[in-house]
């Protein structure tokens, strides 16, 4: 149980670091851009740690967890779209 919580938590941090790091490194200027590159390096480091040290990629439990995560996000997006349609149509 704790393995799943830790590995999925690290995946979440890695995704946000990579995503935000890319955006900040591309659109930022001077100091902000440097911070963006730092976030990118942290994200890549976490990805390396997850693949090389924790090796969750070979575990079915990890991919089941990823399925649950992606399913939850898609479900949330569908729910918000339903809300928007209901509000716009009214």
């Amino acid at each position: 149980m704790m393995d799943i919580v830790i590995s999925m938590g690290l995946v979440g941090i890695m995704l946000s670091m990579l995503g935000m790091g890319l955006l900040i490194a591309y659109y930022g200027s001077s100091k902000t851009r440097n911070v963006g590159f730092l976030f990118l390096i942290i994200g890549v480091g976490l990805a390396y740690y997850l693949t090389m040290e924790v090796t969750p990629w070979e575990e079915v439990a990890f991919w089941n967890g990823m399925l649950a995560f992606i399913g939850g996000i898609i479900g949330g997006i569908i729910g918000i779209i339903v809300f928007l349609i209901a509000i716009i149509k009214s």
Binding site: M8, G9, G12, I13, L15, M20, V35, A61, N64, A68
Partner: peptide, 28 residues
């Protein structure tokens, strides 16, 4: 297990976002 996985990943993303906001606010 599925619920815990999803919540853990979302929690990780929120922690990451907070860390990014904290660093960006601290950096001059």
């Amino acid at each position: 297990n599925a619920l815990i996985s999803g919540v853990a990943a979302l929690g990780g993303m929120i922690i990451g976002m907070f860390a990014i906001l904290f660093v960006l606010m601290k950096v001059d």
